[in-house]
Design a protein around this nucleic acid. Structure first.
Lengths: 355, 355
DNA sequence: CTGAAAGCGCTAACAG
DNA sequence: CTGTTAGCGCTTTCAG
């Protein structure tokens, strides 16, 4: 099987010339166009009226020189970087990838750039990133931070706009876009009850996340409202990951082999749980139904496809970006937005026949 | 089912105070510390020797004021933004998400920021992004661009470092990090042949991508070397997406229901193809084996788990970022790096028993 | 070891 | 409609 991998590493130099050509400046453009620097600036920004004659010559010069305004210089002078930062725990997580895409889509359409930062759940990295963003962006979007709110509070206090997304952050003066996590838990419970299960289990998210607690509360409350309760040994917490879900499902199976419904606080856990369940010989949904929360796109690809209470991650991101840009660009008040959630029913809770 | 979605939208204002506090400047720090601006600058950068006394006072002042150097001003003066741009077709695609994570990890460790841009395969957006990055970043990493190379060439010519990643770009003076796509195709073929299939099919990527063509060539060549060939009706191209794979698999099934091995030019297609195959009543791998290329993490989660020739997307990104930062930070020559690929065998090509 | 002064490339008054 | 003039906040000579 050793022929099954290519050789170590190939490398070759591509060009022989250093070509330390520096970008053209606005002054060069002005000189070539035979106008003043400010006319170039105005022509390019369309800020003040410039004669057709002049702007044509400017355009020509810009084109000939391949001129691009220097964002840094502009930012220094105009006191706006036209950039926002986005801090997520892990950009590979499909939920945050979707959020990031939403952020980026509206930022792009509004002419803002976005810095991406993945903390990988490392507090030191998070602190470092936040620090850096404070110096490079006009505002930052913080998703599910694990660190202490102090640093974020200091950012807000020193004039950097902050919008929290997904998970609340204890900071005054920050905006926020969240989903109705309690409702998500309730909806999941209601849907599960519809299938008349006898033995329900619950896989929660990390205890330190308020969103995880809210989902649990919603789920529990709805169950109790229906006169059902959850024995403690069928309720446990794990990471918001596929592995976390696998592990939790195995635990549940060990303490109650006859479980026939499992609620997961997020989709990744649900994917892992469903997999573990199948590997333990259970049919999903015939023997056990599984439901998650989040609404990641991979939910329709897994086997079976995953029923989920979607939080519309793309919209979470786009709404958050819109709010942040309003705050930073138009001086809008920070506010809090709670987005609705909705059930997306797929195979993992499908009634298989006459049950 | 209407109770299965939360109310429209909730919103409330979070703070009543505008608090237009502007960030502290280096001058304020200097004043508070009782030293000059340049001493503050030097103390902070550790560039020139500063007495312990002074730097202590500076540190204190920085802390008290919550001072953060303004990146834009620094960039304007020092002529380095310490930022790179990353342009990908779609940041939600797990392959590019992984690449992005690799890029970001090394950028972060080297003290560079990264701008993320998803073109969504829209040439206008790509052009817009590239343009913007030219003004905001010191260099840009371009993954699988669809647009014309002219713009990228102009960027290089005007002093913006460029590194292509994954897909080559016809530009002189750009660096590049690629994987050995031909080898990937060959390895896939060799592995498939190991299973002694009778009717092999091939799902290629978009014809306009050189990587797609190379994978096809590698696959074909290896087949021919083994004295096998592929009837044209069992070879077709589709998008590098799950849907593309689904569609292609359906086509193949229609023209040859007895196909028992399908090679896909990327993992997303393979996931889609496997799904379509199963939905058409075929067992994977018992009836048909499926193999992809890329090595996305979701390959181990799908049912069955996916055999793939991995290109190690994370490393592709980290290597590309390292090269770009060397070019832009240390004036390194642009060069071309070709990374090895390797077979990762999973269930989708597993021999089920004695076959 | 420190400070004064000169800009980075750009925008934004302000006069013409 | 246009040009001149001050800076943005920072780094970086250059003298002390």
């Amino acid at each position: 099987m050793e022929s099954m991998s290519t050789d170590r590493y190939i490398e070759r130099v591509t060009s022989r010339e250093a070509a330390v050509r520096r970008p053209a400046t606005i002054r060069e453009v002005a000189a070539l166009a035979g106008v003043s620097v400010s006319t170039v600036s105005n022509a390019l920004a369309g800020r003040r009226s410039v004669s057709g004659e002049s702007s044509a010559r400017v355009r020509a010069a810009v084109h000939r020189l391949g001129y691009r305004p220097d964002g840094a210089a502009r930012a220094a002078r105009a006191q706006t970087r036209q950039a926002i930062g986005l801090v997520v725990p892990d950009s590979r997580n499909p939920f945050f990838a979707e959020v990031a895409h939403g952020v980026e889509a509206v930022a792009q359409s509004l002419g803002w750039a976005v810095f991406l930062a993945s903390t990988d759940l490392d507090e030191a990295r998070e602190a470092d990133y936040l620090d850096r963003m404070a110096g490079a962006a006009d505002g930052v979007l913080v998703c599910s931070t694990s660190g202490s709110p102090d640093q974020v509070q200091r950012m807000v206090d020193s004039g950097i706009a902050v919008v929290a997304c997904d998970e609340r952050v204890a900071v005054t003066g920050a905006g926020g876009v969240f989903s109705d996590d309690t409702a998500a838990g309730r909806i999941a419970a209601r849907h599960i009850l519809t299938r008349a299960p006898r033995r329900i289990a619950m896989i929660c998210g990390p205890e330190h996340l308020a969103t995880a607690r809210a989902r649990r509360t919603g789920f529990r409350d709805e169950l109790q409202a229906a006169g059902r309760s959850l024995p403690p040994w069928r309720s446990l917490a794990s990471d918001y990951t596929i592995d976390g879900g696998r592990w939790a499902a195995d635990q549940i199976l060990a303490s109650d082999p006859r479980v026939d419904a499992v609620f997961c606080a997020n989709d990744l856990q649900a994917v892992g749980a469903a997999q573990a369940l199948r590997q333990a010989g259970r049919q999903v949904p015939a023997d056990v139904i599984v439901i998650g929360i989040d609404g990641i796109a991979w939910g329709e690809v897994t086997e079976p496809s995953l029923t989920s209470v979607t939080r519309d991650p793309h919209r979470l991101g786009s709404e958050a970006a819109r709010l942040l840009i309003q705050m930073v660009g138009e001086g809008a008040q920070p506010r809090e937005i709670v987005l609705p959630v909705a059930l997306v029913e797929r195979d993992s809770t499908r009634r298989s026949g006459g049950d």
